[in-house]
Simulated assay, not measured.
Amino acid sequence: MEKYSQFRDRGSGIAPFFPISSTPAGIYLPVHIFLFLFKLPFFVTVATTYFLFLQWFPLGSLFKKAILWMILGIPGIWWIDLQIDGVKKGSLAKKHEGRIPQPSSIIASSFTSPIDSLYLAAIFDPIFTVSYPHTRQVRRISLLGAILRALSSPQDQPPKSAKLTDLKTLLVENPQRVVVVFPECTTTNGKGILPFSPSLLTTPAQTKIFPISLRYSPPDITTPVPRHYWSFIWNLLSQPTHCIKVRIAEVVYNTSKPTDHATEKKDRYLTNFLDTLGEDSAMTSSTDTLTSLSDQPAEVNPEEKRILDKVGEALARLGRVKRVGLTVKDKAAFVEAWSKKRR
């Protein structure tokens, strides 16, 4: 693993992109094979039927949630360890209704496995979004898209054909829905929290942001390396049971005042253009300036950074992990190096 030392966080030594190996089955390997072969037909049948047909019918949220719980139950994901900041177990229904996400609120979730989206859909029936490191806008996706996203390669920029929006617009258009944001932009193995996308900064000031950490036991159903479909299915179905540890932090509000980035970028462009005026390469320089501006991370002011840090620190505390400095670009470089090793 020394050759991958550049993909460890310099401060903590944490490696958030390495896959987590399963515990060797040993003499229980025949049992694991039996469980896998027994569960696979049921899992494939129910999941395929739902995502190809039933999700398109007006069956109602309750019926759809029941099917999603069936999909979770077949692999043995039936033990949910739920803890909420400031709430004693058993007292939530009495006087703490505002401690869990409600319609017109935002969930800022950790991102480690396809099960993240499946669980959140079974509980909250939310709208799922994709965030990117260099823009405050998000792309709306379906539940299946969110599941596949956890098994896909990291994307530093949105596709050219992607239809982007922002969280404020989504909330206005869907006042009866919860919106899920994965601010880390790509999956990890759950051992660290990556730097956040600025997409959360488009949340209206009065809207509640709920940091939610999802952790798994055993943790081998996390998918930090993309396209490992078969190993994920094997780890999911060959175990007798899985536990989800759900931690919900106290509400965070976006109290920051946004910077006028359009004016700022325009002023920077004009300054660079005037500096190069009269040179033979003026046209080329101005074009390069525009390109470089579009490639830079979306800038945030100190107050906005404080809001993102508050949500990031909440997720790190809930998951009992540390925040790391590795980015989506580092993840892409790791995936490329890891793929070469496997070949």
Rank of each mutant, 00 (worst) to 15 (best):
R139E: 13
R139D: 13
R140G: 14
I141W: 04
L143R: 13
L143I: 10
G145T: 14
L148A: 08
L151I: 13
S152G: 14
S153K: 06
S153M: 07
Q157M: 08
P158E: 06
P159N: 06
P159I: 15
S161E: 13
S161Q: 12
S161D: 12
L164S: 10
L167R: 07
K168S: 12
K168T: 15
T169R: 05
T169C: 04
L171G: 04
V172C: 07
E173I: 13
P175M: 12
Q176L: 03
R177N: 10
V178T: 11
V178Y: 01
V179R: 10
V179Y: 00
V180N: 01
F182V: 10
P183C: 08
E184V: 14
T186H: 00
T186C: 05
T186M: 00
T187H: 02
T188Y: 01
N189I: 15
G190D: 10
K191E: 09
G192I: 15
G192T: 15
G192P: 14
I193A: 01
I193C: 03
L194E: 09
F196T: 15
F196W: 08
L200Y: 12
L201T: 12
T202H: 12
Q206W: 02
Q206E: 13
T207F: 05
K208S: 12
I209T: 09
P211H: 00
P211E: 05
P211A: 06
S213K: 03
L214W: 09
R215N: 05
Y216L: 07
Y216W: 03
S217Q: 14
P218R: 12
P219N: 09
P219I: 12
I221K: 01
I221C: 07
T222M: 02
T223S: 07
T223Q: 02
T223H: 02
T223W: 01
P224D: 12
P224C: 07
V225Y: 00
P226F: 10
Y229H: 05
W230S: 15
W230Y: 07
F232L: 09
I233E: 05
W234T: 13
N235L: 01
Q239P: 10
P240F: 00
P240R: 13
T241F: 06
C243Q: 14
I244H: 07
V246E: 06
I248E: 02
A249K: 05
A249T: 15
E250D: 13
Y253A: 05
Y253L: 06
T255C: 03
S256K: 11
P258N: 08
P258C: 08
P258G: 06
H261K: 15
